[in-house]
Simulated assay, not measured.
Amino acid sequence: MTTRTDATFFPPIPEAQRWLKGKTFSAERPLINLAQAAPADPPPPQMRDAMAEMLSDPASHLYGPVLGLPELRDALAQDWSAHYGATVRAENVGITAGCNQAFAATLAALTHEGDEVIVPVPWYFNHKMWMDMTGVRAVPLPCGDDLIPDPEEARKLITPRTKAIAIVTPNNPTGVEYPAETLRSLFDLCQETGLRLIVDETYRDFDSREGAPHDLLQRDGWQNTLVQLYSFSKAYRLTGHRVGAIFTAPKLLHNIEKFQDTVAICAPSFGQMAACWGLENLRDWTRGQRAEILSRRAALVDGFALLAAEGWRLRGCGAYFAYVEHPFAMGASELAPLLVDQAQVLVLPATMFTPTGDASGERCLRVAFANANEEQLRSFVSRLAQLDLPALAPPATTA
């Protein structure tokens, strides 16, 4: 008998890493790995020094409160209140072992087997995987050419089994920053229909817009509709220490606490202590990291002008990601592994972010550029421009 986990697709990042097995790359033309969005560097030196001192604290090695260390919950509530011009209290904050677990815990508290969650396409693959493994149906919400979900199209997908709409902004995989008006309309829709709006803001710290990207936390009764998710992995490079967060109503966090206690008991205490130190001491450093990511984004956008003449199209670009439409006759699922050999580039096909059979996935690639410097990004663009592959036939026209 096949289990739901057995029927779930294999994680895309390890799958793409298999394309490198047995391959070697020259020093003159090294592999440019643009597949994974996680920071490749460790936390900054000043944080590592502070973490070394934390190791002598016995509490760093012990279980902590299931919903997180009180000092971290309080510091994060203050940070969120200041950033969004709103009132967020520590009781609205739960700490999880990474943002993926925040999503899993939220759905465990909100859904039964057979329930539905509306997700824009292309979607974040780990969200889809969790739904598949737990028997929750992911209802695809196709986006238009701008890759922004339409709230009125989402309304058409609501059924008696719908429990939530889940979005990621800035988006993974497209990099698109959803406008405040879109989030406001989705919030209104969820509030009207009794759904939860799950907003994964893992890449919030690299949004190109100054200030708060939306005003949802200023809405009356926000905690009864909104569930915000966050990750410390990107902002402070704490990927291996697994610290994420959930912002919502205390009543929902009470049910999430049951999930946490069963699965992880608590997020790692050492990582939580580091995250708290980062909130208090790394504000200027994180601003610098944001500026660097925005500079790399600009370099990729500028460089892409070279590819436009070759039929490539930059569909979206922001935070850690670019979403590019290729001009070739083959699909992206065939093209992506071929690029390892022909361009010494590793990127993901958009088929890893779309429903099976969705033709849009074969037309696009996801580029994760956060770990590539500007020179590498220029080289990436140059290598794509040198490809000599059969082009997609232009659409037929009628007289």
Score class of each variant (00 low, 15 high):
Lys234Trp: 04
Thr286Asn: 08
Ala274Thr: 03
Thr225Asp: 00
Gly244Phe: 01
Thr225Tyr: 00
Gln260Glu: 14
Tyr230Arg: 13
His241Met: 10
Leu229His: 03
Pro268Leu: 01
Thr262Lys: 09
Leu226Ile: 15
Gln223Thr: 07
Thr262Cys: 05
Gly271Met: 00
Tyr236Met: 11
Glu257Asn: 12
Gln228Met: 15
Glu280Asn: 10
Val227Arg: 01
Arg242Gln: 11
Leu252Asn: 02
Ala249Val: 07
Ala235Ile: 11
Ile265Tyr: 04
Leu252Asp: 01
Ala275Leu: 00
Ala235Tyr: 01
Arg287Asn: 12
Ser269Arg: 08
Arg287Tyr: 07
Asn281Arg: 06
Gln289Lys: 10
Leu217Pro: 05
Ala267Lys: 03
Arg283Lys: 13
Leu294Trp: 04
Arg283Glu: 09
Arg290Gln: 12
Met273Cys: 05
Gly271Lys: 00
Lys251His: 11
Trp222Ile: 01
Leu279His: 08
Asn224Cys: 09
Cys266Asp: 11
Ser231Phe: 00
Ile256Met: 07
Phe270Ile: 10
Ile246Gln: 03
Cys266Leu: 05
Tyr230Gly: 14
Trp222Val: 00
Glu280Asp: 08
Phe259Lys: 11
Val263Lys: 15
Pro250Val: 10
Asn281Gly: 11
Gln223Ala: 15
Leu252Cys: 06
Ser231Thr: 14
Thr262Val: 09
Trp285Met: 12
Asp220Ser: 14
Trp285His: 15
Asp220Cys: 03
Leu294Thr: 07
Gly244Asn: 01
Tyr236Trp: 12
Ala235Cys: 06
Lys258Val: 12
Gln272Asp: 12
Leu217Gln: 08
His254Gln: 15
Ala245Arg: 03
Asp284Ser: 15
Leu238Val: 10
Glu292Trp: 08
Trp222Met: 00
Leu226Tyr: 03
Leu226Gln: 05
Ala275Ile: 00
Thr225Ala: 00
Gln289Leu: 09
Asp220Phe: 01
Lys251Val: 14
Leu282Ala: 15
Thr248Lys: 04
Leu217Thr: 05
Arg283Trp: 06
Ile246Ser: 04
Gln272Glu: 07
Ser233Leu: 02
Thr248Leu: 07
Thr262Gln: 12
Asp284Ile: 15
Ser233Phe: 02
Phe259Arg: 12
Tyr236Phe: 13
Phe270Ser: 09
Leu282Tyr: 05
Leu282Asn: 11
Arg283His: 14
Ala274Glu: 00
Phe247Ile: 15
His254Val: 08
Asp220Glu: 13
Leu226Asn: 02
Leu229Arg: 06
Val227Leu: 04
Trp277Asp: 01
Leu226Lys: 01
Cys276Asp: 10
Glu257Ile: 05
Leu279Trp: 04
Ala274Lys: 02
Gly221Ala: 05
Val263Pro: 07
Gln272Phe: 05
Pro250Thr: 14
Leu279Ile: 15
Leu253Glu: 04
Trp222Glu: 00
Lys258Glu: 11
His241Thr: 06
Ser231Lys: 05
Pro250Gln: 07
Lys258His: 13
Glu292Ala: 14
Gly240Asn: 09
Ala274Trp: 01
Pro268Gln: 03
Tyr236Lys: 03
Ile293Ala: 11
Met273Trp: 02
Cys276Ala: 10
